[in-house]
Simulated assay, not measured.
Amino acid sequence: MANSLLRIGIAGCGQAARIHVERLLKEPDVKIVGCADALRESAQALAASIAETSGESPAVFGDLRGLLDQRPDAVAIFTPHLLHYRQAMDALQAGVHVFIEKPLSTNAQEADDVVNLARGRKLKVAVGHQYRLRPSLVEARKRLAADAVGPLRLVTAALAQPWLARQQERGGESSWRFDPKMAGGGLLADAGDHLVDALLWTTGRPALEVFAVQSRLPSGLDVVTAAAIRLEGDVAATLALSGVSRGSLFELNFFGERGRIHATDALLEVDPGDGSPVRRVDLPEAAESVDANFLAALRGLGPLSCSAEDALDTVRLSEAVARSAATGQVVPLI
């Protein structure tokens, strides 16, 4: 497959799909062969956009089954989160590689099923945890692994965005993302999944137990989540997510015995802890996108930045946070 045309199908044709398709079409030897969406108008609109860019018009389908009949090499899934599991399983059973926009699943058992089926069929499943490719987090992970600030003792992770206000301004077109009872799975499963994955991936430590609280609007929309987490090695971590902030924030702070590392999605600062000034680290440009990484892995040119197996711990921790918030109990993960 290294030098051959890759035929890709798109499941779910909203805004996220448009962003990823634009990246896919910039890569050589890629053809979008079909677009599927329960709202056929969305599939038609995306297909028209692809035709305008590439000169080739993909087939349009109202469901994944028709798309799989085209026998693509891979399917990229951008549907609401609670649909990820069934569609990934259907694609794998059809012998097709899969890219899934995060989260892999909102259910740990389902995520495990996807991993096992992919392993059994010898197929690749990539998960769109794009923050693993951010130079700031890549460098933070390297420095933590090298014990740059001494033994790690505490991690704080925070994410805040004015999502709720934006959706109200737009007429609530994506309010499903905040509702745990609907296809989005709530704030934690949506934007929060990036932060959960970044916390676990940069530290390289699985979570052992968690206690969490959540607050929601009277309508049921999930808007704030906070959790205290014990990571392997008795490292304490806090996680805070807000969808009702007036501004935006994505940051992690790693407190070691000799200093501190502060990372956002775009910068990295190191406090050596010896009284000298905090130093901002020069970072390179991002080397690749998750889409380019997926295509390279299909061609045997390198590993996936985040496979389904890699994403299992993130799904497990997110599920445990939600369970703890619902029950008011500490939830173990081992």
Score class of each variant (00 low, 15 high):
L312T: 13
I77D: 03
P303H: 04
A292D: 08
A94N: 03
L249N: 08
P272H: 11
L83M: 10
D112F: 11
L46D: 05
G220A: 08
G172M: 08
A286N: 05
G275E: 08
A237E: 04
V321I: 10
G273V: 06
V213F: 06
D310H: 06
E209R: 15
Q44T: 11
A158W: 13
G150R: 05
S289H: 08
A228V: 12
H129G: 08
R260G: 02
F99R: 06
V213K: 08
R299V: 02
E56F: 12
H262K: 10
D271Q: 05
G171F: 15
A240C: 13
G185H: 01
S305M: 07
E41N: 04
R260K: 07
K122M: 09
D282K: 02
D37I: 07
G171Y: 06
G14V: 01
Q93V: 10
I334R: 15
T106V: 13
L92W: 10
E232N: 12
A76R: 11
L82S: 06
A165Y: 10
Q87W: 01
I32T: 03
V290D: 12
H84A: 05
R7Q: 03
V30L: 14
L333I: 02
L249C: 05
S54V: 05
V60N: 01
G95L: 04
D29Y: 06
A322Y: 00
H129W: 09
I229V: 03
S248I: 14
L117D: 11
Q214I: 09
H262E: 12
V127D: 03
W201S: 01
F294T: 02
H262A: 10
Q93G: 07
L188V: 14
Q15K: 13
L68M: 09
K122E: 14
L200H: 01
A228W: 13
L25A: 07
L241A: 09
L312D: 01
I10D: 00
R299S: 13
